[in-house]
Structure formats: C-alpha cells, structure tokens
Design a protein around this nucleic acid. Sequence first.
RNA 1: GCGACUGUAGCUCAGGGGUAGAGCACUCGGUUGUGGUCCGAGCUGUCGUGGGUUCGAUUCCCAUCAGUCGCCCCA
Length: 444
Amino acid sequence: MADRPLVKPAPISGFPEWLPEEKRVEDRLLGIIRRNFELFGFTAIETAAVERKEVLTAKGVEAKEIYALSRLAAGEGEGPDTDMALHFDLTVPTARYVAQHFGRLTFPFRRYQIQKVWRGERPQAGRFREFYQCDIDIIGNGSLSALNDAEIPVVIHAVFTEMAIGRFLIRMNNRKLLQGFMAGLGVARERAVAALRALDALDKVGRDKVLSDLAEQAGLSAEAADRLMAFVTGPTDLDSLSRAGVDPLYQQGVAEMREVIGGLDALGMPREAWTLDLSIARGLDYYTGTVYETVLVDHPQIGSICSGGRYENLAETFTRHTLPGVGISIGLTRLLSRLFDAGLLIPGPKTAATVLVTVMDRSRLADCLAVAARLRAAGIATEVFAEPKKIGQQLKYADQKGFRHAVLIGAEEAAAGTVTLKTLATGEQATVPRTDLVAALTLT
RNA sequence: GCGACUGUAGCUCAGGGGUAGAGCACUCGGUUGUGGUCCGAGCUGUCGUGGGUUCGAUUCCCAUCAGUCGCCCCA
C-alpha cells in the first residue's frame, strides 16, 4: 500500500478552486448579482463554453489569449484538431447569439449571462485563466437610447450596495469626449488609440509618466500632450466641458453625457456613487461612447472590479443589422479573491446545514432520523451524524463545521418526548418538546 | 512573450555533503451524555523530476517541470 505510486495533486496556476466555506460566499454573491440583474428586467441566457475559432477571432483578439480544443487522439482518417475554442469573454458569444437568433428575439434585448470564461494569460495576483464574468447588456435594433447608458450603472450600484463590501465608485467617461478633443488638437486617429492607452494609466503611473508616454509612444507634440492632460484633469461639470471643445464628435460626446447624467439623476442614483473621470479610456477599442469602471474607494489596489461601455455596432461581424449595445461585466472571481486577501470578506460556516442531529445512542437512531426528517420537511437544513463516535467528537464536528445548533437525544429526552437543543456559539442548552422543535428553531 | 523569486510533512516554514525538524492541523487519551481552552501521547515525508560532480546528494552544478510575483494586457 505504501509503495503504490500516487499522482501528485497539485493546483493548476490560474484555475482557482475554493474551499466549501469560500464557495458558499461566492454563491451568496452570485445570488445577489442574479437577483439585482433580474430586478431590472434582465433575463438569463447561457451560451456554449465553446465557439468556432473564426467567431472568437473575428474582432481581432490576440490568438494567444484563446484556448483551442483538440482531442488527445484522432479517430480513423481524421486529425485531433477541432475548429472550436473556449470563449474568452461573454460579449463576443452574445454578439453571435443575437445575430443568430435575431428573428426570434425581441428588441431592445436585455440579457444577463453569468458564466466562466477562459484566457490563455499568465496568471498573477487577482488575474486568472478561468474566472466568472457576470454580464448585463442591452442591445437595440437600429438605435438605443442613452437612457440605457444611465441604467447600467444604477444596476451595478444596486449590486455592490447589497454586497456591502465597502465604499465604491463608478467612474464614467465618454470616449467621444477624448477622441473629439484629440481630433480638435489635430491628433491623427491611429495615434489617438495609443494616447487613450497612455491616459488610462493616469492614476496608476502618475502625470509625468503619462506625459512622456503621450510624447514618446503616442507621438503627440509637447503642446498637445499638455493640453490633453489639462483637459483630462480639468473641471468635469457639463458647462465647462461644453466650452472645452468645438469638434463635432466632441460636442456629440457632451450631449450624450448630458443625457446620461440626466438619466442617472432621474433614476435616483446617488451623486456620490459615481463620478465623471475623463482619464477612463478602457483598453478595448470596440467601445464607442460611454465607458464605465468601478473601484473600491478604500482599496484602490484591488483595481477595477467591474467595467463596460457602449458599442455602436455589437454584432457587425455576424450580421448586416445595426445592433448598438451597452453593457457591463463584473469580474466576480477577481473580486472574490481580492476581497478574501484583503480580509473584507470572511468565510463563514463550512456547511449549508444549520442543525446537526447527534446520535448518542445507536439503538435510538430511528428517533434521530425522524427528528431530522421533520426539520427538513419544515425547510430547515439538517444533517445527522452517522458515524459511531462519542458525543464529544460529534459536538467537535458540529463546532468545526459551523452548525448553529446541535440536537441531542439520549435516554432522558427519549423518555420525556423532548430533545436537548444546544446553541453552539453560546453553549446554551434548552429542553424542547419534540413537537416544538421546528418552532424553536424558526424563532432563533 | 519578457524578468525576478520559490519548490522540504495536510498547511506555514527552518535546516543542511553522511538518507530530516518546528509550529499548526490530524488521531487517541485526560472514565458515565457535551465542542471551542488546557495537558499528555501518537501519526505523517520517493526534501518537485531527470541528469552531473562525489566514496556518498535532500544539500553543490546543469536541465526540466511546477508555483508565486512583476511587465504587457485586462475582470
């Protein structure tokens, strides 16, 4: 037996696995997300874990980010390769889904989607190769009102408020402001992309570094870089913004922003929950208007926990219909791992049950099982300790797993038709008639 | 793709050319039906893998694999 070779159980980097008490926390957060998404009228869909490679690469995503599928061995006359790969986000599958089912969907289409995605990246702190994304998107047919851009952060606000993980801030911007402002400065389009990327790092690397990046990597003149920096760090009230540029694209951005802010106020979004931050650019270049990024105010090192934006034509690679959309994604796995690391979330019980029925005397096992059955029928999650061990060990088990109550049934209780109900946290014990046990547990 | 660091008990880690140790965890006990504290006893290892140097390697060297943390990019 000792000589039997073992396969060493080892973690695979970037594929997190939670312990039961951690998974319970994840499920609780998933429940909050799902409930709030539905509260705003988003309906769940699920797409396959795999897509055809040509679907995933249509948007110019780097191929090394994508895990492709192959079989370990090929059958007769065929190769091991397939044309399938694991999806790396939920936006591309949704675009394909919407184009594919266009005729049977009703627009504006509001869906939410909570699934794992896979990315062929090098893992590091808070960065995984398998993780949950929790997406909402609203997709219009031909057009989509800016009121939708306002509703998205309101949903996110509801989610994070209920999660109670500390103060958070939803930072918003509109890409047309940056792009229009740069057009006004005479910055060429291909340089603007590099400039947006440099700007996005502002609060990470600081003003001086961004200025030098704007000059060296985006090729902006010193004057253009200075004016861009002054704009981005300048006043963000709508009147100031309106005066800051005359480019048509810029003015369109101001108008959209005005509509979004009006919508936020009308929807009852608290002013302190969001801010207009002109440095938010977001890396993905399919965003064309509003962009969002959410951070925990007291833990900026955690980084963005939720981000998204508006795209003018979501499914252009799959259909000739014009389908504008706006959406956002919560990176739940990153959020969870960082909240655990920061001690902002502390795992609780290791069991889904609240009551452990102990077995003191094996000859009375049937009694114990009957009590458990009655509790379960009343909707109280209950476990029976089935191993022949001493009562002390059974209580130790109850303590370690985090049950709230233990039920003890010995000779005295059996004779009197009662049980002893012990509250583990306090050690308090009460003698309760069996017929009152459900009521006693429901009250506490 | 680039760089730095780390692989020794279930976990966190110490050690060091003569086949290994601590703390925690775990198991049992401290008599009858009571957990979290305390005390006692016990169990646990191909020292990541392969090769080289050596009388001898877990220890030194090389390679490899794995992991952690940065950069890039992003959730």
